[in-house]
Design a protein around this nucleic acid. Structure first.
Lengths: 180, 180
DNA sequence: CCCAGTCGGAACCGATCGGTACCGTTTCGC
DNA sequence: GCGAAACGGTACCGATCGGTTCCGACTGGG
């Protein structure tokens, strides 16, 4: 139990932030659920905000790796992005995107957490653009921004409806974009 | 100063919840900025959650009235929805949609605030559907759901980018949907 | 004119917030 | 096997959380 305190803090915090939001989860709860001592926490992180930023950074990397993998598994076409999203939306405890949550919960645009959330979205757009390029879709940069808007719209809609329907709806819109 | 305590509470709370989120704003701050006494607050509302719900209800009505009015001012076509959104997105202190914020901040789906937020989105879809019907767009119900997804995507994207560009992007997507 | 209703202000409650300091223990490299 | 580093636990800090209670002032209708 005395090793990997940092890793346990990160995974526990990520699960709690995802499920309940950032402001709703106190340091106290993260400590008790991770089994990490109070002092150890402040040895690894400058404070709660640093933990939030680190969680966002880790989630960014793993989320994009997951998306790449699932898109490839579904055939590798950019439209398969929405098949991947549908998998996530089907989870009964789906709670949206932590980056979006961060943007709604933290008003200060210059905050490290906000900037990390913005960076995540930028990187996702780049990933989508590469997928479009690989599929020889014309004007991949403009298309990627459109796809990103559809992805965010689907995520928010799925959070509201609690079903994967929004992924299919977004996929249909994306299809008609590519057909035009 | 001794009149309209309830109305002052609602408008102050709405401004603060919009700007900083729900969990980040304490009752204390709402009281001091509205000039309402602590006791008066609990005479008018059962608690913070009741205030949140009341704010969401009022905002729902005014937001839809505003959208109807702006769409009409822009010509009355369903595509003018995105012209209206662009106006909002241009505000330097634009902070997204309180209903979306509520859904990300409050995990409990059965909470009155969450249900009010969900009701708002349902009513917006109905409004959009009516606009589509008035414009003789085929399959208005399905189109309305697509438009709603584009609207939510645009709102989240605008919150991230801080520019009205997302409204034009969503409008472009909506145009190609209607052209197909 | 007076009284009932509404109001703002303040004291107070237990709980929790993020953060600091100190303690004794466990682990691991040398 | 010894010392340094990392660890979990606890007590404590001022501030704030949402909520209750009481009080004095102001206001408007009969």
């Amino acid at each position: 139990m005395a090793v990997n305190a940092r890793a346990r803090l990160l995974s526990t915090a990520e699960a709690l932030f995802y499920a309940y939001g950032i402001h709703a989860v106190g340091v106290e709860r993260i400590l008790s659920e991770s089994g990490v001592g109070r002092a150890s926490f402040y040895r690894h992180f400058a404070g709660k905000e640093a933990l939030v930023t680190a969680v966002l950074e880790g989630r960014d990397a793993r989320w994009r790796a997951w998306l790449s993998e699932r898109v490839a598994a579904h055939g590798g076409h950019p439209l398969n992005i929405f098949d991947a999203l549908a998998e996530r939306f089907s989870a009964p405890d789906y709670r949206g995107c932590v980056a979006i949550t961060t943007m709604t919960e933290i008003a200060d645009r210059s905050s490290p957490a906000r900037q990390m959330a913005a960076l995540h979205k930028t990187r996702v757009v780049e990933l989508v653009e590469q997928l479009l390029r690989d599929a020889d879709v014309p004007e991949p940069a403009a298309r990627a921004k459109q796809f990103a808007l559809l992805m965010d719209g689907a995520i928010v809609t799925a959070l509201r409806e609690g079903t994967p329907d929004a992924a299919w709806r977004a996929r249909g819109i994306a299809e008609s974009l590519l057909a035009a």
